[in-house]
Write a protein that binds this DNA or RNA. Sequence first.
DNA 1: ATATCCACCTGGCGGC
DNA 2: TGCCGCCAGGTGGATA
Length: 273
Amino acid sequence: MPELPEVETVKNALETVLVGTQIDRVITRIPKLRYSLNSIKGKKLSGKKITAMERRGRYIIVHFSGNERLLLHLGMSGCCRVVDQETPVLKHEHVLFELKNGKSWRFDDTRRFGFIIPYLAGHEPDCLKNLGPEPLSEIFNTEYLFSVSRNRRCPIKSLIMENKTVTGIGNIYANEALFMAGVDPGKLSGKLTESECEKLVDCIKNILNRAIAAGGTTIVDFKGVDGSEGKFKFELQIYGRATEPCFRCGNGQHINKIKLGGRSTYFCGKCQR
DNA sequence: ATATCCACCTGGCGGC
DNA sequence: TGCCGCCAGGTGGATA
C-alpha cells in the first residue's frame, strides 16, 4: 500500500503525536512480520523517549533518547494508529508500543510484509545504505536520470521503481508519472532521450508533491494515523482505469493493462510513446 | 552486473 | 452458500 507519499503522511502524523513521549513497554502479538520481532521485545526501549521521526524512501526512522533507533517499513498493508490503551486491539495490530502517557501506538499489518528493525545510531542496516536519492531532492534531476538510464535494457517503469536508482516510487506513482510525462512504461530505459528524462523527472516530482498534499492514495486499506483515507485516489489519471476512457485523448480504446516486472501497468497507447 | 520470477501473507472479488 | 483462482500499494533471494 504505501509508497513515498503515504509513508510521508504517516511519518508526519506520528511525529506530531509521538515526539516527546516515553515508551512504557512494547507488546508483540505474533513472533514475526517479515522478520522476527524478538529483537524489539524486552526492556530495551522501556523508559526511552522518542526524540525525532524521519522518513527515508519508504522507511520511517524513529529516534530515541540515547542511541536507539527503530526502522519501520509498512510493507503492502501496514498502517499505524495512536489510541488510548483501553481501546480494543484489532485483529492485525501486531505490535503495540504502550506509552507512559496512557496512549498506545499500534502497528497494524494484515499481510505482514512490513518490518521493524532496531539498531543503534552509526550502525545503519544495509537496506538503508543501498537506497538511491530521494525523488524530491535536487540530486534527482535530468542529468542523473539520463546518466543512470544509459545502457539499461529494463523498461523505464522498472527502472524508476528500483530503490537503488531512486527511492520511494512504487507502482501507483510510477504509472501516474509516466502517463503525465507521455512516456510508454515499456520503453527501454536506454532509449529515453534527455528531454524525456527531463519531463519524467518533473512529472515524478509533481505527482509525489500533489499526493503528499492529498495525504496519499487509498486503494483498499491505506489509512492515515487518524483513520482518514488518502485523497489522491480522486486525482488518479491512469492507475486502475483499464477499460475506461483516457482523460487526455478521451478514447477508451487506447487504455491498456499489462504486466511489467510482475506489476500491473496501465497506459494509454495513444498518449504514451 | 542485470533482468526476471517467485515467495512471503491475508482478504476481497468474480466466476461457477 | 461455498469453493477456487486471481488480484493487491513491496522487498529480496534465486536463477540464467
